[in-house]
Simulated scan of single mutants.
Amino acid sequence: MLSFITSFLPTSYFLPGWLTLETNPVNSLLQGLVCACGVSVLCSLMRVHLYLEDSSSDRNDKDTSNQSAPNHQWRTDTGLSGKIQFFMVTVILAVVGSRAASLVVLEFCLRAVSGWVTAGPESSKFLQQLLVQSQFSLGCALSCSLYFLHEGAPQRWLCLVLAAALSWFLASLSTRLLHHVMVLYKLHSSQRYCGICISLLTSGRCLLPMLCRIIIATFSVAVVAAVSVINQQFLSAAEALRFWTPLTICYTLLVVYMQEEQHRLPSSQVVLNTVVVRLGGLFVLMLTVGHWADVFHVLMCFLGEASCLIPNRDLLDVASSQDEEDFTDYVKREHHRGPKVQLKTHK
């Protein structure tokens, strides 16, 4: 019944082959909905985590001094702008093919592993920034994983409907949790009134490790799916070698560039410039060894990254401001420590 209805949709009759979807539009839309819900869950939980850290730091500052530290400007995208952003991410992830999504996943995994190895003692701060930047990459990971797991399934649309219902339920729960925390957390945590806020007050530090474990499991499945999806396009080992060699060189150069950027002050503008460089290198690579469909899908990835990062620039600013606050606290401690050391040496 579903295939009979979708057969009348103008897909391949009026559009060239590189503009058509890999599956029928209903399956693609359901797959994009699942991926957008995953991005929404990640964004909401990261906002909750950063808000809890900001609240705990403000509480500590009030305990140590009479002056209260200025709060960050937090906002929740529950209005019309949030719905438009969610719709845009859904459509973009529905249009982006599994091949381009696989390339984005492989690039992100290589960048994440190399950055985590070189982060050292600042791994927790690096993980916060990486999770904020991984929104569209998470959507691509879910997209290629769903394509790989449901490939050849006779009732693929039914599996996607169940997955979309579950992901929509989880996204709505995370959005309601975020709204509750933003509005009532300070009141409930101070008066020990709400069970949700008390649990977040006592065990809120476990939220970031839980997100990291979920992201690691998701991208582990996505890497296997990405390699399998890309290797399906080749008929011989020579073709595979001709594709993987420039891809490896391009990704290695991108990782070197990311490591150089980490020595600079982290900010939202640096992140946006990094996104342009990463996808620009992938776009040039697809012009040389890819297909026209890959080039079009990489261009759609530009829009996807912009639709995920630009509305959430406050998260990037909070993550970078926490690093700045840690640096200023270190400078103040060294400044107060200096006269004491000089006095001891003088004695």
Rank of each mutant, 00 (worst) to 15 (best):
L21R: 00
E151Q: 11
V183D: 05
S172F: 13
A100M: 15
R313S: 09
L45P: 04
L149Q: 11
L343T: 10
A100I: 10
M258K: 06
M300F: 07
I249V: 15
L287A: 02
F126V: 04
L211D: 13
L178K: 07
E22C: 02
H336V: 13
E122W: 11
Y51S: 09
H180I: 04
T328G: 04
V26L: 03
T118R: 00
A171M: 07
L178W: 01
L138T: 15
G281I: 08
D329L: 07
C159D: 09
L149T: 14
V183P: 02
V289I: 14
S28L: 00
L173I: 10
E261G: 05
L253N: 06
I215C: 06
F148P: 03
V223D: 01
I216F: 00
C250A: 03
S321W: 03
I5F: 06
A100W: 11
E324W: 00
L103T: 02
V91T: 12
M46I: 04
L160R: 05
S137D: 07
Q67G: 03
I249A: 06
S114R: 10
F148N: 06
N24D: 14
F4K: 05
C159K: 07
L173F: 08
L285C: 05
L200I: 10
L103R: 05
S143K: 10
L19E: 02
S268D: 12
P154Q: 07
L201I: 00
V105L: 00
F283D: 01
I196H: 07
Q262T: 08
W244Y: 15
Q73P: 02
I198R: 15
S123Y: 09
L247E: 11
S268A: 14
S267T: 15
L253V: 10
K83Q: 08
V221G: 06
D326P: 03
L299K: 08
G290S: 04
L253W: 07
V91M: 14
L42H: 09
Q342M: 08
D63V: 04
L287N: 07
T245Q: 11
V298R: 07
Q232F: 10
L2F: 02
F283Y: 15
G82W: 13
F169T: 04
V34E: 02
S7E: 11
Q269C: 11
P70M: 06
R205S: 12
H336A: 13
R242W: 02
V183M: 04
S220L: 14
A237D: 15
L110V: 11
A226S: 15
L2D: 03
L241T: 15
M210A: 15
I310H: 13
A226Y: 12
L241Q: 12
V26Q: 01
G115L: 06
A100E: 06
C308N: 10
G120L: 01
S114T: 13
S3Y: 06
L316D: 09
V105Q: 01
S137M: 08
P209T: 06
R205P: 01
H346D: 12
S268W: 13
T175A: 08
L30K: 03
L15T: 12
W292Q: 00
P311Y: 12
L177P: 03
E261Y: 01
K125D: 13
K62A: 15
R337Q: 13
N71M: 08
F234K: 00
L21Q: 05
